[in-house]
Design a protein around this nucleic acid. Structure first.
Lengths: 135, 135
DNA sequence: CTTTACTGTAATAATATTGGTTACAGTAAA
DNA sequence: TTTACTGTAACCAATATTATTACAGTAAAG
């Protein structure tokens, strides 16, 4: 995976920290230390998954779409949802080989198992709980 | 993660399938459909972790270093051990922000938790069991 | 109604990571 | 001493990721 999960977590934790306020992409980018456009792109995705709401125009910006207690870290993980935990099985193995012929299917089954374990684990933690760790 | 875990799984499953025989990197590469040098590179790592043994010279090649029943998929995962399941927290966040200052520490704790869940899951499956799925 | 401070998004450039290839020294069987 | 391998280094190509620029659209505030 890439750094997108970390960015989404950072964004959402910030929004919880400043709940009640509307945060601009510039402000958020300043905390993460990345380009504001990346923040807007990432939030565009979080909006699609109903985790964040935005307001356009002057004094516009972002807020959480629902209470942090109702956002599970697994929701964030699924929203970011890039590639699998164990990587991709991008190879195009030899179909004339018994192992090559079936390896992708078997690996994908394994990947799915692990993915579910991860989601279960992250489903135990809400954004509110994650945020409580910040002293 | 990248495709290295898939490659290692493929290599080890092949070695189990042809146990008793010594497989060359050319043969293995033919099944995976990648370059033989990549196979040797990946096996170089598996050797370091005592999962594979090699024999140099003519008629040389590779074999499993121990019975497949004694190799857990978690061992393979740990051997490949590239980056974390949830990605990296490569950002260099703003230390003047309460969230930015602590986010990496908090994310790393989360990552470790998830990593352990994955290892636990993969610790239930041996290479022998994985190989049994191939009909 | 125009200025200001924002979002939204496309297009592109820079950088990092990953995978592929060539080359060749070293080894051991035949 | 030839042959068929491993072991690695060095380099190149392909791909993925992240950063930047640019600008249209929106809404509050004067």
């Amino acid at each position: 995976m890439n750094g997108r999960f970390a960015i989404s977590m950072h964004i959402l934790t910030l929004l919880e920290q400043f709940k009640g306020e509307v945060l601009s992409s510039d402000f958020i980018a300043g905390s993460i230390n990345i380009n504001p456009v990346l923040v807007r792109k990432e939030i565009s995705n979080l909006k699609k998954h109903h985790l964040v709401e935005s307001k356009e125009g002057k004094a516009g910006g972002f807020t959480l779409a629902k209470p942090a207690s109702q956002i599970m870290v697994s929701d964030i993980y699924k929203a970011v949802g890039t590639n699998s935990v164990l990587g991709k099985s991008v190879n195009d193995p030899n179909p004339d080989c018994k192992i090559g012929k079936q390896i992708n299917k078997q690996l994908n089954a394994l990947y799915e198992d692990v993915e579910n374990a991860v989601i279960k684990k992250l489903g135990n933690i809400s954004l509110a709980e994650f945020h409580k760790n910040f002293s």
